[in-house]
């Protein structure tokens, strides 16, 4: 594995101590996957086979409402995890899509390798504790924002904290994520400073 990829993975799993042999096994389990812009990485109704860490690009996770419209639940980007985690763990068809909004490179591991790490190294349990705690707090924070802030406040809060990579994806995805119409997002982008 190229050293930059090893650096990315060791940074992502930073709480974990490896012996030399464990590290070699760990790094060799990851494969690199490339996706074109707009390519579906995982389809709703299919099984998620990988847990990903993003090397490059932006991906959106979304589901379809009853009218078949996309409802964006979140994004992944360089350095963040990606994939449809519930489908990956439970091996049931995904309810959501994962789409590459920009050309993307992801490192992925199979479910058996992922679960094997937990069996062979107790440090993974500590990592998982912090990882899922941060995800839970992030989702709770987002829920509070959606329920309590106005559209303009949501726009400002998001634009102030989001990575630059997210600011160049199609507006309709950002608008959906912020639970507003594309026209509202466009108007705010033109008139509100953040």
């Amino acid at each position: 594995m190229v050293s930059s990829k090893a650096t990315l993975l060791k940074s992502f799993f930073k709480d974990i101590s490896f012996s030399e042999e464990q590290e070699e096994t760990f790094l060799s389990a990851w494969q690199e996957y490339s996706f074109k812009q707009n390519e579906l990485i995982t389809e709703a109704g299919s099984l998620e086979k990988k847990f990903y860490v993003v090397v490059d690009g932006v991906q959106a996770i979304y589901l379809l409402n009853q009218r078949g419209e996309k409802v964006v639940l979140g994004f992944s980007y360089a350095g963040s995890p990606s994939g449809i985690f519930d489908s990956f763990i439970h091996q049931k068809p995904a309810d959501t899509f994962l789409e590459a909004l920009k050309p993307s490179t992801l490192l992925g591991i199979s479910r058996s390798d992922y679960l094997g790490f937990f069996e062979n190294n107790p440090d993974f349990d500590k990592w998982a504790h912090h990882f899922f705690r941060d995800i839970l707090f992030g989702r709770l924070f987002r829920e509070v924002e959606l329920l309590t802030l106005s559209a303009e406040e949501r726009y400002i809060a998001f634009m102030q904290r989001c990575p630059e990579a997210l600011k160049v994806i199609p507006q309709k995805y950002l608008a959906s994520y912020l639970n507003m119409k594309p026209e509202t997002f466009s108007r705010l982008r033109a008139s509100v400073l953040y």
Partner: peptide, 9 residues
Amino acid sequence: EHQIQRLNS
């Protein structure tokens, strides 16, 4: 996307 999801079903 809606069609792909239903075909998967």
